[in-house]
Design a binder for these strands. Structure first.
Length: 514
RNA sequence: CGGGACGUGGCGCAGCUUGGUAGCGCACCUGCUUUGGGAGCAGGGGGUCGAGAGUUCAAAUCUCUCCGUCCCGACCA
């Protein structure tokens, strides 16, 4: 079993100079490719902007939330205020996921925030699973309510009630619904984006005629919507697999998951897709008449991704200089930064460049706040993870060029004015792929195939372990649980989704997790 | 909810042991000089010291209770 040094390793490998001006990286400092800065050695004396990841990852996470102005706690414990910059990224996620959901045939609708308590109680496992985390409204209009109202922790129940009305015939199937909403699950230990009492998400709810249809749709959403989005837009590779019974959604017969590795080696469940069997169909009488006039019960599914993905984005890509947002989700893909301007002429050129970039489809913003020093602004944009910084100063313009600085590698390259639009678009594309490759190789380097529990424990101290499911058969899960290691999912021997809880040859992916 | 740490301007902290009514760095505001990697100088604004109660002539400081935050566990998207 091979081992790699702790954390943040790829910052010190290769010729990356993303450490310019920062105190967190000792080697490679003087190598600014553009040859444009010379103060880097002095800059090393400055304290790091963020607590370095290797020193204290949770603190790094807190720091970045604050300093990149992403989110903060709301006044009620567990609630979250999402600041504009982070919300803009969330909106990009929503747009991308929504398009894929629609491509998979589901339609958006909206169901109420308040659910009669009695609905929750209709499905035994569902109530049991959720009752500890419910927020329940007992008063309204100044009076005690006859029946308490639950703030939705998820909407299987209300939606089930309406599906039951809307579905009469096999011709009404499949019924593929989705809603974007907020939900509330009272959390004991909240953590911004990762686990908040109120969060934003998308919840799909579908009814199918057969178990096979339901199963294949749940898997289709997992792969074609979630995995595809995470890999190609968020540039986060994920392991997909089947949850073990203990980790299943309350009321599901099968839960599928996308598990990603964060830069501290812990796993984050980024999305789930559930087969609900006929549990909710039975509880809410979701049924139809088939071709032969026989009454049949539907098979339902539900699936969701949430603002937790923001936490995943931050922890999968962020480095000691801040966030790194892959171009396809970046709300701001490029910032045109005026280095210095004495008579307004540089800013004018910057505006023109901005217009050109905008026309060629790059989401960009102007930073002409020359009252604030260049270094300060450069650092701030790095903190926010904007993929490209286009530096425009009098010196450049004298030579008819600008400098493009990449957030992923820290590299700076000069670019002729006339080529900016094409170059920027090309670099963004390259960065998108590069970030995915980097995440994938980092993850793979920390994912170990092991055969014993002792090895799994060892591997999970820095990353993931893949262990034969059979090796955890008697007491293995409990043994690992003592070290806070859990089974993230089961995969088949070939790497696909395990088809059952006791599939022969299945492999368990185990890790510490969020 | 169990174990640990901690709550002092927006952020990070000192002051608490030996009570005497608040300070530092960053950030912020104004002006000038600056601007190619976290600017400098000068001036300025902002805190009933997490909340409540108690002890005391006097509480950031001592006592109790509560609340909140962070880490570790049980629970979860």
């Amino acid at each position: 079993m091979k081992r790699r040094p702790e954390c943040a390793e790829h910052e010190s490998e290769g010729s990356s100079d993303q450490s310019i001006g920062r105190g967190d990286c000792s080697a490679e400092v003087g190598s600014s490719p553009g040859g444009l800065s010379n103060g880097t050695l002095h800059a090393m004396a400055k304290p790091p902007i963020l607590t370095p990841q290797a020193e204290d990852f949770p603190r790094w996470y807190q720091d970045i939330l604050t300093k990149a102005q992403l989110a903060e706690n709301g006044p009620v414990r567990g609630t979250m205020v999402i600041r504009p910059y982070a919300y803009a990224i969330w909106e990009r996620m929503v747009a991308e996921v929504d398009a894929r959901i629609k491509a998979a045939g589901a339609e958006n609708a909206y169901f109420p925030l308040f659910i009669p308590e009695s609905y929750l109680k209709k499905e035994a496992q569902h109530v049991e699973g959720f009752s500890p985390e419910l927020a329940i409204v007992t008063h309204g209009g100044g009076k005690e309510l006859d029946e308490p109202v639950v703030v939705r922790p998820t909407s299987e129940t209300v939606i089930g009630e309406y599906m039951s009305k809307w579905i009469q015939s096999y011709r009404d199937l499949p019924l593929l619904l989705n809603q974007w909403a907020n939900v509330v699950r009272w959390e004991l230990r909240p953590r911004l984006f990762l686990r908040t009492s109120e969060f934003l998400w998308q919840e799909g709810h579908c009814a199918h005629a057969t178990e096979d249809d339901a199963a294949s749709y749940a898997a289709r959403i997992l792969h074609e919507v979630y995995e595809e989005f995470m890999v190609n837009v968020l540039a986060i590779p994920v392991f997909t697999g089947r949850k073990i019974p203990q980790e299943r959604f309350a009321g599901a017969t099968n839960t599928l998951t996308c598990e990603a590795m964060m830069r501290d080696g812990k796993a984050l469940q980024m999305g789930t897709s559930h087969e609900l069997g006929q549990n909710f169909a039975r509880a809410f009488d979701i049924g139809y008449q088939d071709e032969h006039g026989e009454r049949q019960l539907c098979w339902t599914t539900s699936w969701g991704v949430s603002t937790r993905m923001m936490g995943g984005l931050i922890m999968a890509h962020g480095d000691d200089a801040g966030l790194r947002v892959p171009p396809r989700v970046a709300a701001v893909q490029a910032v045109v930064l005026v280095v210095k301007d004495e008579d307004g002429s540089v800013t004018q050129v910057a505006r023109d460049l901005l217009d050109g970039l905008t026309e060629s489809g790059v989401r960009c913003r102007l930073d002409a706040q020359v009252a604030t020093g260049f270094g300060r602004r450069a650092t701030d944009w790095e903190l926010k993870g904007v993929p490209l910084r286009i530096e425009v100063g009098p010196r450049d313009l004298g030579e008819g060029r600008v400098v493009i600085a990449r957030r992923d590698t820290g590299e700076k390259v000069p670019c002729e004015l006339g080529e900016l639009n094409i170059r920027a678009a090309a670099i963004l594309e390259e960065m998108q792929l590069g970030m995915l490759e980097q995440s994938r190789s980092d993850r793979d380097a920390r994912t170990f195939d092991v055969s014993s529990i002792a090895e799994a424990r060892e591997a999970a101290s820095t990353g993931f372990a893949r262990i034969p499911w059979a090796a955890l058969a008697d007491g293995g899960i409990d043994q690992l649980a003592k070290e806070a290691i859990t089974v993230r999912c089961l995969q088949s021997a070939e790497g696909g989704l395990a088809q059952s809880d006791d599939e022969p040859g299945a492999v368990a992916l185990v890790a510490r997790s969020y």
